[in-house]
Nucleic acid binder design. Structure first.
Length: 470
RNA sequence: GCUCCCAUCGUCUAGCGGUCUAGGACGUGGCCCUCUCAAGGCCAAGACACGGGUUCGAUUCCCGUUGGGAGCACCA
């Protein structure tokens, strides 16, 4: 039998990293086994479900490199299916109409809980056999009162609960709308889902869903519950305290490859391997090695991974990803300019994110006379005493035969030789500030090569003009 | 409160009874390299939650305790 899996997010306006990881696990596992991956939008909550909201979730998946084979299906468009299933359950007496009002139930529930007992619906309407004409009513599933609703979870092993712990749950509201569990099970049956891989928060819901499968005369799928991701304080991931939207990470300059690598390793491992390409994820991921304990998302590890992927990114690709960020900052640059590409090569090992890279590349994109010099750096390195050497260097650079690192280095050393006691650092720093505006940059010779002779000379001239007098 | 789940360095994890004076990675500290900043190399500190069993022998198996988490809706 061929494998069919699904990812079923609710369109909340963004793709949550927990959901993203669940999707990634589903995707990787399905791809490895050559199965079919279905996408289903659980948008029965019409309030929050908008087209933009759905697009954000789909966009997040696509950006991560997660593709699907069928869908997206929307639960909002499948109401007839749920209604039909409920009617069938009613007709076969596997479900019954319940006329208890929420207020009545709450009163009885409170009374029961007050005695310290566990509350499940007291089945007041179970034997009444109300017909359709009974007035406003909900529909409840007859859940077995004995035996165990058990299953063998691929991650957690033998799991389940005593059936009597569950009680007769509502599957259709008084207003006629189906409840989540009913819709999920009906859909999973209709879509022929063979393996459900989802968050461990559903571990406790599974027994009830099992009862639903049984009532529907359907064979339940295999289940694999993956541990939750918790915040850096070890508690539940909070939208307030933790960055949780995939979109946020994209905007912050993280690469999808780094995100996937980060997420796949959070709760899963393959020996001591840390780096996993998308290709490796889809060939190596397996449910056996999924952790049972929930894990904390470590932003530091993500940064490290991101830098790793930045370091091995093809130059052109990087250029076309960083250029828009520069343009957005008001300093456009031609992504195909070879010098810009060369600069990015120098910046790779100094940048943890694309955003940071763009900031560091800014001096290249800005016009010579608009370069802002860092005040602290200027105070520290632009001393009146550096003027003679700087003037000397300006002249020397103008005479460099071939504008490459070796030629520029030779020019620096020629100048150093004429100024006794002057160390390279003492000359490099003022020049660095003149050319990049900052006291930190890639190697000075390489930087000058990239910025070009004309712009180097223009910037040094401007620095000379700004240099404090003796 | 009830039900279920979980528990190795700060974090992610390896370990599936002896190979463990517990390995790797991120992070942290130090050193080297060095024109700045990085990157890189080397070194270091750092964990089996606790208590009982089982066993010749437990990080590994069992039971408690403690500590976390999830679920208990006419939410999804």
């Amino acid at each position: 039998m061929s494998i069919r899996t699904r990812f079923a997010p609710s369109p909340t306006g963004y793709l949550h990293i927990g959901g993203a990881r669940t999707a990634l696990y589903n995707w990787a596992w399905t791809r490895r086994l050559g199965g079919t991956f279905v996408l289903r939008i659980e948008d029965t909550d019409r309030e929050r479900s908008t087209a933009e909201s759905e697009a954000a979730v789909l966009g997040g998946l696509s950006w991560l490199g997660i593709d699907w084979d069928e869908g997206p299906f929307r639960q909002s468009e499948r109401g007839a299916l749920y209604a039909e299933a409920i009617e069938r359950l009613l007709a076969s007496d596997r479900a019954y109409r319940c006329v208890c009002t929420p207020a009545e139930i709450e009163a009885r529930r409170a009374a029961t809980v007050a005695t310290g007992a566990k509350w499940t619906y007291d089945r007041r309407c179970a034997a009444a056999a109300y017909g359709p004409e009974c007035g406003p009513h909900a529909v409840r599933l007859r859940v077995p009162t004995d035996g165990k609703l058990g299953f063998d979870d691929a991650v957690f092993g033998p799991s389940g609960q005593e059936a009597r712990e569950i009680g007769d749950m509502v599957i259709r509201r008084t207003d006629g709308s189906p409840l989540y569990h009913l819709a999920v099970v009906v859909d999973d049956v209709a879509m022929g889902i063979t393996h459900v891989i989802r968050g461990a928060d559903h571990l406790n819901n599974t027994p009830f869903q099992l009862a639903l499968y049984r009532a529907l005369d359907a064979k339940p799928p295999h289940f694999a519950h993956v541990p939750l991701i918790v915040g850096s304080d070890g508690r539940k991931l909070s939208k307030r305290r933790d960055p949780v939207a995939v979109q946020h990470f994209r905007d912050a300059g993280y690469l999808p490859e780094a995100m996937c690598n980060w997420l796949v390793r959070l709760g899963w491992s393959h020996g001591d391997q840390e780096i996993f390409s998308m290709q490796e994820i889809r060939t190596l991921f397996d449910l056996d090695a999924v952790q049972r304990a929930s894990g904390q998302a470590d932003p530091g590890k993500l940064e490290w991974l991101n830098q790793h992927y930045i370091k091995e990114r093809p130059r052109d690709r990087l250029a076309h990803e960083v250029a828009p960020l520069l343009a957005a900052a008001g300093t456009p640059v031609d992504p195909d300019n070879p010098a810009f590409g060369a600069l990015l090569d120098l910046l790779r090992e100094r940048s943890k994110t694309l955003v940071e890279m763009a900031e560091r590349a800014r001096f290249f994109a800005v016009p010579d006379d608009a370069l802002v010099h860092d005040a602290d750096a200027v105070r520290k390195h632009w001393k009146p005493a550096t003027r003679p050497a700087l003037e000397d260097l300006a002249g020397e650079l103008a005479r460099v035969a071939t504008w490459d690192a070796a030629g520029i280095e030779a020019a620096f050393h020629a100048v150093l030789a004429r100024h006794a006691g002057l160390a390279l650092g003492k000359l490099a720093q003022p020049v660095r500030i003149a050319v990049t505006g900052s006291a930190a940059s890639p190697g000075i010779f390489e930087t000058l090569v990239v910025i070009g002779r004309d712009r180097t000379c223009a910037r040094i001239a401007r620095a000379l003009a700004l240099l404090p007098a003796a």
